[in-house]
Simulated scan of single mutants.
Amino acid sequence: MIVELKKEEFWKCRELVNEHVQIEAIAVIESINPGRIFVDDQKHPLTGLIWLGNNDGFIFFGDEQNEKFNREINGFIDSVIVPEARKVQLEWFEGVGNHERWNEVIKHVFDHRQLGSWVQRVYTLKRSDYYLHSEPVINVDYDVIKIEKSLFKDDLIKNIDFLKGKLLEFWTSIEDFLDTGIGYCIIHQNEVVSICFSGFVVGNVHCINIETLKPHQGKKLAQLVAHHFVNECLKNNAVPYWDCMEMNKPSVAVAENLGFEKVFEYVGYEFLLE
């Protein structure tokens, strides 16, 4: 029977995770970032499923040949995940394997569902590869600001709740982010219009989350705010980690323009939660 672990039990899964793929899994297991973990056995887990706290997907980990887990997972998704997903308006199950051997298992276990797939790219950046000269020059009406405690006390910022909301998708509290993460935003006419911050952190590796509001896209704001984020990382001997869909050409372009190099790819799978 698949069961949910309590947060203080997450450590039982640490040795089951492939450290050389998604850092998000480790971040949840080490309770750096929020998430839920479901396993085949509460005392001695062999296989499990991580539900990322930002509702941005699920990660299968451990023994992919665990027949008991694979036999039960569809029923568990229908009876437990679907009702919980409805509470947060989540309509799609987007899952990845923590190692590539999961790919065939996922396709087989969910072959009765309308299963789609995509390719995800992961980039990292070394100091020696950083294209400092690619930092764009933009309109003087845009100001780059570090995300720190004083920013949240600025009553002139019209949409500070937008920034708070984005951070809280990944972090338990704003304080947790400020203690562990790095972030920059761009302000235009007292409005946050572009952000780049640590979504997940494991050790000195900072997984980037970046977003620009639609009316301000196409102005190289993402590239500019990412430069400031990368500079801060390198100054603190942190490793910037960029994870995006292969089909997301604007995100790929920003990463490669800064000098990020692709280190691996993995496949994601999706189906409608009904």
Rank of each mutant, 00 (worst) to 15 (best):
E67V: 14
Q223P: 06
N98D: 12
V205D: 01
Q120T: 11
E8G: 01
L115F: 02
S150R: 05
F162D: 06
I182N: 05
N159Y: 09
G48I: 15
E24M: 11
I208F: 06
N74I: 11
F177T: 09
D243S: 07
C196T: 13
W102L: 05
R36W: 10
G116S: 08
S251L: 14
V88I: 14
F197Y: 15
N231T: 07
V267N: 03
K6G: 12
F229H: 05
E91F: 07
K158L: 13
Q89N: 13
L178C: 03
E175M: 09
H108T: 14
V254P: 09
N209T: 08
K214I: 15
F93A: 07
V88E: 04
D41M: 12
G181D: 03
L125S: 08
K6T: 03
D40G: 10
R86P: 01
D40L: 04
L90Y: 00
L5T: 11
W118V: 01
C13W: 02
F152E: 01
K164G: 10
L49N: 05
S117D: 06
D154C: 14
G116Y: 01
R71W: 04
G259W: 05
A222H: 01
H133Q: 15
N18S: 12
L156C: 07
M1E: 13
N54A: 08
V225Q: 00
R14Y: 11
L234G: 12
G97E: 04
M247W: 06
F260S: 02
H133W: 11
E19W: 07
P250I: 08
E256W: 03
D111P: 00
I145D: 01
L5Y: 09
L16H: 03
H228F: 12
I186L: 03
E256T: 07
Q89C: 02
Y131L: 10
L234H: 11
Y123P: 10
Y123D: 06
M245R: 10
G203A: 08
S251D: 02
E211A: 13
S128G: 05
I174S: 01
F69W: 04
K164D: 05
T180S: 14
W242P: 08
F170A: 10
Y269F: 13
Q217L: 13
G35H: 02
Q89R: 05
C13T: 11
G165M: 06
H133Y: 13
V230W: 09
D41H: 13
G116H: 03
E104L: 11
F60I: 00
T212I: 13
G35S: 06
H99G: 04
C196M: 08
R101M: 08
K126R: 12
S194R: 00
F110W: 01
Y266L: 09
D111G: 00
K146Y: 02
H112S: 15
